[in-house]
Design a protein around this nucleic acid. Structure first.
Length: 739
RNA sequence: GGGCGGUUAGCUCAGUUGGUAGAGCGCCUGCCUUACAAGCAGGAGGUCGCCCGUUCGAGCCGGGCACCGCCCACCA
């Protein structure tokens, strides 16, 4: 029913000046070339190196993964207390561990240097049960005396902390668990080949047989798991490729501190980014997967040389071997980090690159700030010398309606296409934008419904305007009356406010501000106020038509980013040749149209109508009945018909003491006397009057109390005190009218 | 263990410099009023998590507490 401008493919409502598709960089040779160039350059700069280090080994994917791909899960393990006899034969040291199978790789015991219970043992040797290895007892401040027994077994091959301690103290690194998740030969023939958990049982059984288990207790703690496979991470020493991040991070920290790259909202995201960057650690970039950009490094079996090159070397410089390529691939985020420029065919100096790099805005969610955003900034600066983008709006995360994460496995996901089928693309877009604020929010189908209602309202309001307006008139602000000046003033204020919201990436505020202005001011008041003129076939409606079209045109522009399809469709019905709304310029605020007088005047009219309507309802007046009354207030000279028509009163100006006044309704700068008529239930009217008197009395008391407070009068700003005084005077006048 | 965010109307959420709380939905009442019943008019409903403090005045500022959530971190 609605034409998707730009073809089927752009149903999202995105308007793209130019489209560059880069779907799968692994399959895109120029992109792959960029990845290899970056790797080799970083290698040549000494920022990428190969090392035997402790990595997060994911037994599920059988690959190393980065720190960022690890998530902690709470697990209940058994904490085993194991006795390690001293070589001297004078007793034993008891340690606590949740992973007894790794004891086979122990190469030391450690205690805190200041722990009085153990200081005499430092430098002594203990004997590793089952294995018989001699373990030196070392002192290291890492050990927490209060945990367990205060003595720690050191397993540099299978624990990240122990690895660091081992490197510090120059300990042997024994590996008893292989990359296949099975115990290695080094574990001894009793255990070799067993799965880790089976090995644990076997080790515990063997220790029990030796009487070396001093006790057990259940122990709850967080254990790292693979984000990808969900399996428990096996920390292993492994030969991997690492990227040293500190040098890359330095300028990337600076550009955010200097405000050249801005996060929105700045709090807390700039801080989150900076604190991660300032504590950045080496990035393990190699993966033992078959899918990905293969690492551009070759090894020569003959001379042992390692060659990093963008092209495969025919022959090793040593002249003997034909080099063999490293089978590992790169972390997918390594290639993603190059996205802003590699998609544009960098390192070639293409027109695309010159035109679109750097770009302006990268919209994303917070979970990807480190994985992607930070790395794009670092790589962008390093390889192009420029920041890749200037603004990074961080969207809120939309949760399932019940507050859980949206996820496929939980079945809590919502398919936007289903929602679009039900409510329309504009509605889903508006709803998502309106519900997303600065914090995480639950998906609200009601907001989408609200978007649908708004799109519908836009359509209907446009219909009113377009069917009644003189079609030969050019849209232009041509005010004839107070309400014209009022809406034109309000229109400029809305333009300023909503434009500012877009500018500062407060899209949900933009959406709600637009909703309020269009529905609450344009539809509820302006269109209602101009109807008599609009329907008057005799009158010259040229100026009114111009103004109405101007208002409509502006509203469509303000709404277009939120509601692209319906606004574009309506736009096409506006008179004249005007091209696409999407391509039309954003409106400039015209401060000349600000009109305080008109805003005050029409504001009073609105208040008066609302007060009279409330009165009608409270006294149970039939909806169709016109109530006679007299208006005793200044400033309604040109608006009497408006008030009368929209409040359904029969109003005459001035005070006539003849006539039966049954009530007085306060309106700005005066009141309306309601005259006796069949429409009014006098009993209801009396009850209403009494309630109003009571309300006024309590408000007067409050205002008087405030003004009697010498602290308030002497210390509050003058205009606040003055406002309070005027309010009190007004309330007293209203009470006077009622009594 | 550090850091951050949340706690406001039955529900989902706003609330920009401190000046007696707002929206949408839901609910109640009345309306098919000539753009729109996917609508119009009106209404009810809140000790702004708790306690202290600063201030003439606190949902907004400071301190503490309680729950909920997130991030970072090498605690067996």
């Amino acid at each position: 029913r609605l034409r998707p401008h730009g073809g089927d493919r752009y149903r999202s409502g995105a308007r793209l000046e130019r489209v560059v598709d880069r779907v799968q960089p692994v399959l895109d040779p120029p992109y792959a070339h960029a990845v290899q160039k970056v790797f080799v350059d970083l290698y040549d700069k000494g920022l990428i190196y190969r090392d035997n280090r402790m990595v997060n080994w994911d037994p599920g994917s059988r690959s190393a993964i980065s720190d960022l791909e690890v998530e902690d899960r709470e697990v209940t393990d058994t904490l085993y207390y194991i006795d390690y006899p001293l070589e001297s034969g004078r007793g034993s040291v008891t340690i606590a561990t949740v992973r007894p199978e790794t004891m086979l790789a122990d190469t030391a015991l450690a205690v805190h240097p200041d722990d009085d219970r153990y200081t005499r043992l430092i430098g002594e040797t203990a004997i590793l049960p089952l294995v018989g290895r001699r373990l030196k007892i070392i002192a290291d401040p890492y050990v927490k005396p209060e945990f367990g027994t205060g003595a720690l077994k050191i397993t540099p091959g299978h624990d990240p902390n122990d690895f660091e301690i081992g490197r510090t103290h120059g300990l042997d690194e024994v590996t008893v668990i292989g990359e296949d998740g099975l115990m290695t030969e080094a574990a001894g023939e009793r255990f070799a080949g067993l799965k880790v958990l089976d090995a644990r049982d076997a080790v515990v059984a063997a220790l029990e047989a030796e009487g070396a288990i001093a006790g057990t207790e259940p122990y709850e703690h967080d254990v790292p798991h693979s984000h990808r496979s969900g399996m428990r991470i096996e920390p292993l020493i492994s030969l991997q490729w690492f990227c040293d991040m500190e040098k890359l991070a330095e300028p990337a920290i600076r550009v955010v501190k200097e405000g050249r790259v801005r996060f929105h909202p700045e709090n807390p995201w700039a801080g989150v980014y900076l604190s991660w960057m300032e504590n950045i650690r080496p990035w393990c970039v190699s993966r033992q997967l078959w899918w990905g950009h293969q690492i551009p490094v070759w090894y020569c079996d003959e001379c042992g040389e390692m060659i990093a090159a963008e092209e495969e070397p025919e022959q090793c410089p040593c002249g003997k071997g034909s080099p063999r390529r490293d089978p590992d691939v790169l972390d997918t985020w390594f290639s993603s980090a190059l996205w802003p420029f590699a998609t544009l065919r960098w390192p070639a100096d293409t027109p695309e690159l010159r035109a679109f790099y750097p770009t302006d805005v990268l919209v994303t969610a917070r979970d990807i700030i480190f994985l992607w955003v930070a790395r794009m900034i670092m790589m962008g600066i390093e390889f192009t010398g420029e920041i890749p983008f200037t603004d990074v709006p961080i969207t809120s995360v939309i949760q399932a309606p019940d507050g859980r994460r949206m996820s496929k496995s939980l079945g809590t996901g919502i398919d936007p296409l289903d929602e679009i089928d039900e409510y329309g693309a504009d509605a889903v877009r508006f709803g998502l934008i309106a519900m997303a604020s600065t914090q995480d929010v639950r998906y609200s189908e009601k907001r989408v419904k609200q978007g649908q209602d708004l799109a519908n309202k836009l359509w209907n309001a446009s219909r009113l305007v377009l069917l009644k307006v003189d079609p030969d008139v050019e849209p232009a602000p041509r005010p004839e009356t107070a309400e014209d000046r009022w809406i034109l003033s309000r229109l400029e204020r809305a333009t300023e406010r909503i434009g500012g919201r877009y500018e500062s990436f407060e899209l949900s505020r933009a959406a709600l501000d637009l909703y309020d202005f269009f529905w609450g001011e344009v539809c509820d008041w302006y269109l209602e106020l101009v109807k008599p003129r609009l329907y008057d076939e005799q009158a010259d409606r040229t100026a009114l038509s111009a103004t109405l079209l101007h208002v409509l045109e502006r509203v469509l522009k303000l709404a277009h980013p939120l509601i692209p399809f319906v606004t574009e469709e309506i736009w096409s019905f506006l008179p004249g040749e005007r091209g696409l709304l999407a391509a039309s310029p954003w409106p400039k605020v015209d401060p000349e149209r600000f009109d305080e007088a008109a805003e005050g005047q029409v504001g009073s009219v609105i208040e008066a109508i609302t007060a009279l309507r409330r009165y009608r309802d409270e006294v149970g007046a039939p909806a169709g009945a016109r109530i006679p009354g007299r208006i005793l207030a200044a400033g309604y000279e040109g608006a009497l018909d408006h008030v009368a028509r929209l409040a359904r009163f029969e109003l005459e100006p001035g005070s006539d003491e003849n006539g039966d006044v049954v009530a007085t309704v306060a309106i700005p700068r005066g009141s309306v006397q309601v005259l006796r008529s069949d429409a009014i239930d006098t009993g209801e009217a009396e009850r209403r009057r009494e309630a109003e008197v009571k309300r006024l009395q309590s408000e007067i008391a409050r205002a008087e109390g405030k003004l009697a407070n010498s602290g308030f009068v002497s210390k509050a700003p003058e205009h606040v005190v003055e406002a309070e005084r005027q309010k009190l005077a007004r309330l007293k006048a209203e009470l006077e009218e009622l009594s």
